[in-house]
């Protein structure tokens, strides 16, 4: 039993990190009042950018490549989300349709560019993050084995971003204003908050974080960009966002929960005691519990109230 747990937990931490950061991206966007179902696409361009950057510079930049690649994935994700922001904030477009366009565009343009630049739709990288043991902490019995051995450094970066986000959203003036734009943009506007600007910032942060999530996928466990990179992680993040009740630590909990479910589903083939469980239960688990959660939450509206509606000043 201990063997199973100690092999599942570190692996699920690796799966959780990108899921968590993408869901957190969704949080910024939805809290500012813009629904972002383009997370999958934003993740994809981030992944592609990281992979392309790495194969181009892995020879010349040395060990710094992997960190710069993550930065590049963040910037590229942000650039693509600019289109979503422009359509849904400046052009009052239907946010779901715009998000769908982002998803389609991302899948197409990345594979197009991969074929054009490398001649194949698969981009394999040679430099990536390697699992390391955290010094000192990894020597702690039990906890050390579970959380501090064989982990990616990026996992801690992601955790730091989550804690920072909680602080930013709940304890600063900026966070209050951002949330106000998602709850009641009209009163926010009447108090002098620039709603369009806040929503642009929300969407751009979500693009940056989703792009970073894609970068982490490639630079840690995937090590290869291909069509299979678009395997629904962005949509799973959306589920984690809802299940985490649109709160940073809620998302942390739901992401870990889903991350473990994903890992168990993937590993059930090799672990004898899990082989009898049909994989359908584990694989559909996150989506089913999210549907159930939505039903349970339905009486108390907990999501941002104004999310999904274009801001129309004349309705004030």
């Amino acid at each position: 039993m201990w063997d199973i747990i100690s092999s599942i937990v570190p692996l699920s931490l690796a799966y959780t990190a990108p899921l968590l950061i993408i869901a957190l991206g969704g949080l910024y966007s939805e809290r500012s009042g813009i629904v972002n179902i383009g997370l999958e696409g934003l993740m994809g361009v981030g992944a592609f950018a990281a992979a392309m950057f790495t194969i181009t510079f892995q020879g010349s930049l040395g060990g710094a490549t992997i960190w710069i690649a993550l930065l590049v994935s963040l910037i590229v994700g942000m650039l693509l989300s600019l289109f979503h922001a422009f359509a849904s904030v400046s052009m009052n477009a239907n946010q779901v349709i715009s998000g769908t366009a982002i998803n389609m565009f991302s899948t197409a343009i990345t594979i197009y560019m991969a074929r054009w630049l490398t001649g194949s739709s698969n981009v394999q990288i040679k430099r990536f993050f390697i699992k390391t043991d955290v010094p000192i902490l990894s020597d702690i019995p039990i906890i050390g084995d579970l959380f501090f051995t064989k982990v990616y450094t990026t996992t801690y970066v992601v955790l730091a971003i989550v804690i920072f986000s909680w602080f930013l959203l709940n304890k600063t003036r900026f966070g209050l204003r951002l949330r106000a734009c998602g709850e009641n943009p009209h009163s926010a506007d009447s108090m002098g908050v620039n709603v369009s600007r806040m929503r642009y910032i929300g969407v751009l942060i979500s693009g940056a974080l989703a792009g970073l999530g894609g970068g982490i996928v490639i630079m840690t466990y995937a090590k290869e960009f291909s069509q299979l990179t678009y395997n629904g992680l962005g949509f799973l993040a959306l589920a984690a966002l809802i299940f985490g009740k649109w709160k940073p630590f809620g998302i942390l909990g739901s992401s870990v929960f889903f991350g473990i479910a994903m890992t168990v589903a993937n590993m059930s083939v090799i672990i004898p005691s899990l082989q009898n469980i049909p994989n359908i239960f584990l694989n559909t688990f996150p989506y089913v519990v999210t549907l159930l959660a939505l039903v349970l939450f339905s009486n108390s509206s907990i999501g941002p109230k104004a999310a999904g509606e274009p801001y129309d000043v004349s309705k004030r």
Binding site: F86, A87, A93, N94, S98, A101, T107, A108, I109, I111
Partner: peptide
Amino acid sequence: ELVQIIMAVIIFFAAA
């Protein structure tokens, strides 16, 4: 994938 790109652009303009 060019075709998908064109379709995505069409959706984008249909939204905006």
